[in-house]
């Protein structure tokens, strides 16, 4: 299962709800304002790193760029994907749950 999160972790608890329900082996894709959760040096980064022990993380590159967020400062181990990569993930993981 692929979980997408499109809200900033500093604004809502959407990411927390997602992580509460992401089973081992599933994936989380951060999109839109959700990409802020992918950055190093925030209190959220520790939670993401902890979750990454069981769940794969991806972040949508175009949304990072749009917000001026530097790809080099994305948490190590989070893979940056483009729109094509997004599509591939939805196919690879079958069902999608969008955390809005």
């Amino acid at each position: 299962m692929l979980h997408t999160v499109n809200k900033s972790p500093f604004q809502t608890r959407t990411l927390e709800s997602c992580l509460r329900h992401a089973l081992p082996g599933s994936a989380v894709l951060l999109i839109e304002d959700g990409v802020y959760a992918a950055m190093q040096g925030t209190p959220i980064a520790d939670k993401v790193r902890a979750a990454m022990e069981q769940v794969r993380f991806y972040v949508l590159g175009p949304d990072l760029e749009a917000r001026g967020m530097d790809g080099d400062k994305v948490i190590e181990g989070i893979e940056i994907v483009d729109y094509g990569g997004f599509v591939d993930l939805t196919i690879e993981y079958g069902t999608v749950q969008s955390w809005l």
Binding site: M1, H21, L23, T95, V96, Q97, S98, L100
Partner: peptide, 18 residues
Amino acid sequence: SADEISKLMAEQDVVLSF
């Protein structure tokens, strides 16, 4: 529990979120 719901969610063909 959150855990039980997660498992149910993973069994679905389609999940629609609101």
